[in-house]
């Protein structure tokens, strides 16, 4: 991928924030353990990015630089929330709220027929049980248009490490789902 060096003073931050907001929201969803917090995480990341724009060296795309901030904010947000709500479970988060206000229980598909259907209901629980270093690369694979090199850039780790962590995340998740079946 060709990297265009952009100076911080040449950036129209408001336009850039508007352009990348949807992408950053996906990064926030992939990074945060609670999707309800994603909007707040993006907002705080944009504020931090605006304040620290002078430190942007232009050695990577702006959206990747902003994505790094999103990931850091998401990690800190999860830690602060985890301290406050250590053993609380948000049962409401296990269901999907539609635009019309109706809610639906989470039911992921099982195309290969490998996993127990009941276990698939707990996919969110199993994903959230993964450590951040395994969970984030795996979920970021689902972000539209995000490649392995970009995931490496966002997480600031080598590409090989990204691939390795994705593999072990798949393996842990598979074992968790199959263990329940047995």
């Amino acid at each position: 991928m060709k990297t265009v060096a952009v100076r911080a003073e040449d950036i129209d931050f408001e336009a850039a924030a508007r352009e990348h907001r949807s992408f950053l929201l996906q990064i926030a969803v992939a990074s945060a353990r609670n999707p309800i917090d994603a909007e707040d995480i993006v907002q705080e990341a944009l504020i931090r990015g605006f304040r620290g724009l002078k430190r942007f060296r232009g050695d990577c795309p702006l959206r990747i630089w902003l994505s790094r901030i999103v990931v850091r904010v998401a990690i800190n947000h999860h830690r602060s929330v985890a301290r406050r709500l250590k053993r609380w479970v948000f049962f409401a988060d296990l269901e999907t709220v539609h635009q019309d206000g109706s809610s639906q229980a989470f039911e992921p598909p099982d195309p290969a027929g490998v996993f127990d259907r009941e276990a698939l209901m707990d996919i969110r629980k199993h994903v959230n049980r993964l450590p951040d270093e395994f969970r984030m690369p795996l979920v970021m694979l689902a972000v539209e248009g995000l490649t392995i090199p970009e995931i490496a850039g966002v997480l600031e780790i080598p590409e090989g490490t990204v691939k390795s962590r994705i593999f072990y995340a798949r393996k842990r998740l598979k074992e968790a789902l199959q263990t329940r079946k047995k």
Binding site: L120, V139, K171
Partner: peptide, 20 residues
């Protein structure tokens, strides 16, 4: 079994994004 995890994760991500 390892490959079957990917569509689950994609579906999970879409659900999470819809909530967000």
């Amino acid at each position: 079994a390892l490959i079957a995890v990917d569509p689950l994760i994609k579906n999970y991500f879409r659900q999470q994004l819809a909530i967000a």
